[in-house]
Every structure is written in structure tokens, then in C-alpha cells.
Amino acid sequence: MEAPLVNSANEEVGRVALPEEIFGTPVNEALLWEVVRMQTANRRRGTHATKTRSEVVGSGRKLWVQKGTGRARVGDRKNPLWKGGGTIHGPQPRSYAYSMPKKKRRLALRSALASKARDGELVVVDGLGLTEISTKALAANLKAMGIDNALIVVPERDEVLEKSARNLPKVKVLRVEGLNVYDVLCFEKLVLLKGALERIQERV
């Protein structure tokens, strides 16, 4: 498999070979769903909480005597059946995180990358032409390439590119070690810097 290599002016300057074992992987949509579900679950904070009758502020006095009034027996005002009382079986802080086998996660990542190549949403660039931190310059370069919604994958830390992209709401810069299924599928285009291809092959 091959893909065109373009520069920041969207001019083709060569061709690059795409590893068949990654970008030729059959797209497994069910596995992609599983991994995205795991990632979104792991991102949940799980800080929701309701107060039980032991946590509600109020008196513990018994409201009326047990017998002789003709009314139903009752305890204190914190009874869950009363307005302002505690909550029965309400949500409590917990972790939603769970894990999946590493082989399945790697296969899902290969499947996500292959889906971008299959759908023509993969762009390989030799550089984005930034010499200093400039959101305006990065936005102009991406516009020249016909891109306004993209995940840009870099082989290593690139402070100039990362800081230039942080104010663009539909652009995210990610290093190869942080590459994941959710982000690959979340953005319309996957932009790979040339050096990132080899690093991706080593990782997956």
C-alpha cells in the first residue's frame, strides 16, 4: 500500500509505503465499539453521590408514638419515604474503569487506522511548515490542505506544533505513544507526520 506524501502547501512531494500489516487490517466495527466503550467508561469521573438517611441533616427524634394515634408507624424525618429524607439505593462514588486484553486493543487500533486509509481520510505530510508558535499559521496551512477537523500525530514532542494547535477546537496534536482508537475515530482526518509512521509500526 502507498499514500501520497504532501507538504504544507498540499503539493505532492513523493510517495510513502503504508505497512500492510497495519493499514491492510480488516475493519472490525464490533471491536472498535468495544474499545471506544472502554475508553469512554475509563474517562468517567464517577463522582455522583446521593445522601442516605444517615447523611441527611435533621433530628433523629421519633415523630409520634408507635401506637395509639391511628397513623402509620414512623421513625425520624430522615426516613427515605418522606420529602427531604435520604435516598434509597442512590448512586454513590465509584470507578467505571475496566480493561481489555492488550491484543484486542492493538487489533482495534490497527482496525481504526485501516478504516481511515480505506475511507481516504489519511494524510501523510513531511511537515507543517511552522518555525514558531502560531495558531494563525497552522490554521492557514491546514486550510490550504483542505483540512479543518483533524488529529495530527507526531513522532515525538513538538512544542511549536502542540501549542499552535491548542486553540483550534477541531484540531488535536497527539504523540505516537498516546495514539488511541477513540481519538482516531473522533476526528474527520488523520494527519501523520512522516516520522510517525515508523513509530506507529513499532507500537502496534
Rank of each mutant, 00 (worst) to 15 (best):
G58M: 10
Q66I: 06
K136S: 05
G70D: 07
L130V: 11
Q39E: 05
V123N: 02
S54K: 09
K116D: 00
N42L: 14
G58N: 13
G120P: 04
S134I: 05
N149K: 06
L31H: 06
V65N: 13
T52N: 02
V160A: 08
V160T: 11
G90F: 09
G85D: 12
V74F: 09
P93K: 11
Y98W: 12
I133L: 09
G46Q: 02
M145Y: 03
Q39P: 05
M145A: 03
V153H: 04
S111V: 07
G60A: 14
L142H: 04
A114F: 00
A165D: 00
V65E: 15
W64F: 13
D148F: 10
S95Y: 07
K83G: 05
G84D: 02
D76F: 06
V154L: 04
W33M: 03
G68L: 00
G90A: 14
L128C: 00
D148G: 11
G75W: 12
I133G: 06
P91K: 05
V124S: 01
R77A: 10
Q92T: 12
E55D: 01
A30K: 14
A139E: 07
S164A: 07
A30N: 15
E159D: 10
L63V: 10
E29K: 03
P93V: 13
K102F: 13
